[in-house]
Simulated scan of single mutants.
Amino acid sequence: MFFVTPVFAQTKTSSTPQAIYKVDTDKKLIALTFDISWGNKVPEPALAVLKKENVKKATFFLSGPWTLRHPQIAKQIKNMGYEIGNHGNLHKDFSDYSDSWIREQVSLSEKAIQQVTGVKTTLIRTPNGDFNTRVIHCLNNMGYKVIQWNTDSLDWKNPGTQNIVNRVVKRAVPGDIVLMHASDSSKQIVEALPQIISQLRAQGYKFVTVSELISGAEVSSTVR
Rank of each mutant, 00 (worst) to 15 (best):
V4C: 13
V4D: 04
F8L: 11
A9T: 15
A9V: 13
K12F: 11
T13H: 11
S14G: 03
S15Y: 10
T16D: 08
Q18K: 14
A19R: 09
A19G: 11
I20T: 15
V23H: 10
V23G: 08
T25I: 12
D26W: 01
K28V: 11
L32A: 07
L32Q: 07
T33A: 10
F34R: 05
S37R: 11
S37V: 15
W38P: 01
K41S: 10
E44C: 04
A48K: 15
L50F: 02
L50K: 11
K51N: 08
N54H: 13
K56W: 01
A58P: 02
F60N: 02
S63M: 06
G64I: 09
G64A: 10
G64F: 02
W66F: 07
T67G: 06
H70W: 00
A74H: 02
Q76K: 15
I77R: 01
M80Y: 08
Y82N: 06
N86M: 08
H87T: 05
G88F: 06
L90A: 14
H91G: 02
H91V: 04
K92G: 00
S95Q: 09
S98E: 00
D99T: 14
D99G: 12
W101G: 10
I102P: 02
R103C: 12
E104R: 13
Q105W: 03
Q105L: 06
S107F: 04
S109W: 05
S109D: 10
E110Y: 09
T117Y: 00
T122K: 15
L123K: 06
R125S: 09
G129D: 04
G129E: 03
R134P: 03
R134A: 12
V135D: 05
I136V: 14
H137Q: 15
N141A: 15
K145S: 14
K145R: 15
K145V: 10
V146D: 04
V146F: 05
Q148H: 14
Q148V: 06
W149L: 09
L154F: 10
L154C: 10
D155H: 07
N158P: 09
P159Q: 15
G160Y: 03
Q162Y: 10
V165Q: 05
V165D: 03
V168M: 05
V169G: 08
V169L: 08
K170E: 14
K170G: 08
R171G: 05
R171A: 14
V173E: 12
V173D: 04
D176S: 13
L179F: 00
M180C: 05
H181Y: 02
A182T: 04
S183P: 01
D184E: 03
K187L: 15
I189W: 00
Q195D: 11
I196Q: 03
S198Y: 00
R201S: 01
Q203P: 04
K206C: 11
F207V: 07
V210E: 02
L213W: 12
S215L: 11
S215G: 13
V223R: 14
